[in-house]
Amino acid sequence: MNVFEAVVVGSSAGGIRALENLLAPLPNDFPLPIIIVQHLHPESESYLPKILATHCALPVKQAEEREIIQAGRVYIAPPNYHLLIEEDYSFSLSLEPPVRYARPSVDVMFETAVYAYRDKLIGIILTGANDDGSYGVKKLKQMGGYVIVQDPKTAEAEAMPKSAIAAAQVDKILPIEQVGVYLLQLVNRSLRGGIS
């Protein structure tokens, strides 16, 4: 079993509620970084870290260029920039053109996360009204990582989870209330498996 090193999350329409659900069950000693791309209006203020922090025991902040990624923190992509993950586990930002209308793009973040964390990565796709993230999920599965998708039936917008499920053999499909708890179990199990 893999010893996971990071969690990446993609969400779009309806995502803020879903992210609150995902983060709420995680304890303050959660051992991995959680890196989130949520589609936002390009000119929106970055209020998202504040909102999520009130629902979460972990510190939540906007990712900054060249920042070193640390375990037990939640990072959010800034609006209107792509968020990329470097192989030395730091962040880059980029103003490359939107990918399939999205900037930040889930695909761009997932793809670069796969280069950095390889098979030690957990990817989570939540609600959204487009297919951003499905290419990233495909890459993640090719590399041997683990993918959880929100059950489209419980999603405010089903396109994003649906296309992720169609893109690759994902590992787990769960209603949103169960995703956080499952993630916690998965990570704990992997850590124990890694020790023995």
């Binding site: 060249r66 792509h82 990329l84 993950i85 470097e86 192989e87 880059s92 980029s94 490359e96 761009v108 793809e111 670069t112 280069y115 950095a116």
Partner: peptide, 8 residues
């Protein structure tokens, strides 16, 4: 240069 973007 930051590698991730170039590599991608």
């Amino acid at each position: 240069y930051a590698k991730a973007s170039i590599k991608r």
